[in-house]
Structures are given as C-alpha cells and as structure tokens.
Simulated assay, not measured.
Amino acid sequence: MPAKPSEDLESIARSGGTLRRMAARVPTYLTDLRENPAWLPMFVLARTMPGRRAHWWTARKVSEAPLASGSMFGNINPRQAADELRTHGIFTGLNLPPEIHKEILKFGYETPCFGNFDRRNEFLASEHADAEKRFNRSIISGHHFERVLNCKAAVAVQQDPLLPAIARHYLGGEAKLITTRTWWSFPTMTATDADLSRASFKFHFDLDDWRMLKFFFYLNDVGSDAGPHVYVRGSHKRRRLKHQLTLVVGHPAEEVLAFYGKDQAITVTGAAGTGFVEDPFGFHMGTLAKREPRFMMEIGFGVSKPSQRRFHGEPVIRG
C-alpha cells in the first residue's frame, strides 16, 4: 500500500481545525503581503462593516452609458442589475448561449485539471475515480488555473461588455477584471463522514478585496445532487459583530441562518448555461456534489491590484 501523501490545502481547509486551517494559509498570506503591502489593512479591516463602508465611499461614480457593443446575454440593464445587487447581494438571469456553454464544457472534459488546488494531482475529469486511487486521497475539486485562457468561449464570456458594465455600476469606476477560472466539484466515495459534513454545511464570505463582484456560470446541469450554490440574501450589507471580529470567514450553517434568516438562503439550481452574479462578502457556499459532478466558471471583478505571482488566487502550498 502506498504511503499516505502530505495533505493538500483543500483537505486541510475542509477537515482541519481553525488554527490548522490558518497555518496552512500562512504561505499564501505572506506572499500576498510581500507582493502588495496594502493587502494587510484590507485583510484586517475589510471584514468589518465600518471599514468596508469607508472604502465604499471612495468609489468613483459611473455615468449612464449604453454598452459599447452587443452582449451575448441580451438586453440586461447593468444599472438595474447593480441596484438589485445592492438590495439582495445576488442577481440571477444571466444565461449563456448554448454554443458557448457547450464549448466550455467540452474544454472541461478535454483539458486536465489539478486536484484540490495541487498541481501535482493532474488528471482528466473523466478519470476522477482512478485519480483518487492513483494519488491515494479523496479529490473534491479540480481546477484548470491558467489553462482556461486557452478556451476561446471562456475568454469570450470574460470579455463580454455586460460584465464590466455591471461591475462598474456596482463597485465604482475602479472596477477591473481580476479572476477567471473554471473548476470541477466531484462527488467522492472516499471522504469521511466528517469531511462530508464540513464540506456541506459551512457558510463563508470572501475576503480577497475591499469590494468585489463575482459572476458564476454552470457549465453542466446542476440539480440538488450536483453541489448547487447557496447564497444568503442581504448578508452582504449587515454583519453580526461576531462575524466581523473573527479571523475565520467560515461559520456553521445553523449559526449563519439563525441570524440572517433561513428564508434569505437561496439555492441556485439550473440547466447548463445558468448564470448569476453576487457580492461575495455575503455568506455563501458551494454544497457538496453528492451524485453528479458540477463544472463551473467564475469571472471576478475587484478594485485592487490582482496577484501576479499566482494565477488568480491560486494558493501557495508549502512543501
């Protein structure tokens, strides 16, 4: 029997204790700090509502203007989308044309991905079960990193004029593209009950920038068993004091829903091509893929300089 490999960041994030998870992220934090010293005040203050509100006051206003060219998403008004985002934190109704999401899905099957954020674990999505045996570990996700830029359809979505228009109306005139990524979420038979429990029921918020907006697209059909995305409406603009004064961004579902309201949690399911945009400071989670894999694309906008050392947020893994 092969020796058990060293744990990857995904495994630690899903099964380790708070201190262990934070320790695993230290190399990434130090890299961010060396590259951009302005990262530290953001990391400390952007989790607080006063800090975020102060930064929102610096947003440059955007004048009303028609889109420079036609959008693949049809006649969606970016200002109205931004208004709904301000109210609820999420806007749905962004549907990819069939030829676009089919081409990206084809890319997802034909292009090797990296399991659990680790470039040492490379495999095709169709080889997931064999990859778990080969690498002797459960593999819950598979990311393509910079390879997504080889997919013309993915780049076409990234460059569609509607996305930056919505981002500018919501984030301000400083809004810029900072992330483009595709990844698989896999059902796995090798994870422990503790892994499954923690992966399924942990809401979190993103703390990558002072102000962010993320567009998500399902590239295959996503029902209740394929790991649908869940978002807590309104949690982007009010925050329990306990959730501001903690170093961790993940919290148990029952704790989050008890404060923000169970009726505010929206589960997004849909056919291939279904898209939505959200303020990721609101509590959200990708639930566990139980029976079917989920293939997803994210395009993110922010207001700060993106990391140049790693591909769009790829973690630094020690050793």
Rank of each mutant, 00 (worst) to 15 (best):
G250C: 01
R240K: 14
V230Q: 15
K237N: 13
S235A: 12
Y231S: 10
Y260W: 01
L245H: 06
A253P: 01
L241F: 14
P228N: 06
G261S: 10
K262D: 09
S224V: 03
A253W: 05
R240A: 15
G234R: 09
V232D: 14
A265C: 07
M212E: 07
K214A: 06
A226R: 14
L257Y: 04
L219G: 07
E254R: 09
K214W: 01
Q244M: 15
K262Y: 05
H236D: 09
A258Y: 00
R238Y: 11
H251W: 14
G223Y: 05
H251L: 02
I266C: 08
L213A: 09
L247C: 07
D225H: 13
D221Q: 12
V248A: 09
L247S: 09
H251S: 03
E254H: 12
Y218L: 04
L247R: 11
Y218A: 05
V249H: 13
M212G: 06
G234T: 01
S224Q: 14
F215G: 04
E255W: 00
D263Q: 13
A265R: 05
R239P: 15
A265V: 02
Q264S: 13
V256N: 11
D225T: 11
A265G: 07
L245W: 14
I266G: 05
F259C: 02
Y231N: 11
E254P: 00
L245Q: 06
H236M: 15
H243D: 14
S235Y: 02
K237M: 13
H236F: 03
K237I: 09
Q264L: 05
F217G: 06
G234W: 02
Q264K: 13
Q264I: 00
Q264A: 13
D221P: 03
L213M: 12
H229V: 03
A258V: 01
F216N: 11
D208Q: 10
L207I: 05
R240Y: 15
Q264Y: 01
L257M: 10
W210P: 09
F216W: 08
R211G: 07
G261K: 06
P252C: 00
Q264W: 01
T246E: 13
D263E: 15
V222C: 12
L219R: 05
L219K: 05
D209K: 08
A258F: 00
Q244N: 05
H236S: 15
A226I: 00
D208C: 09
D209C: 07
V256S: 10
D225L: 07
Q244V: 00
M212D: 04
H236P: 15
E255G: 01
L241G: 03
L207M: 12
I266R: 13
K242I: 04
R240G: 06
I266N: 07
A226N: 10
D263F: 00
H243W: 09
Y231F: 15
L241N: 04
Y218E: 11
K242Y: 02
H229D: 08
K262C: 10
V232Y: 10
A253N: 08
R211F: 03
I266T: 11
K242F: 01
H243Y: 15
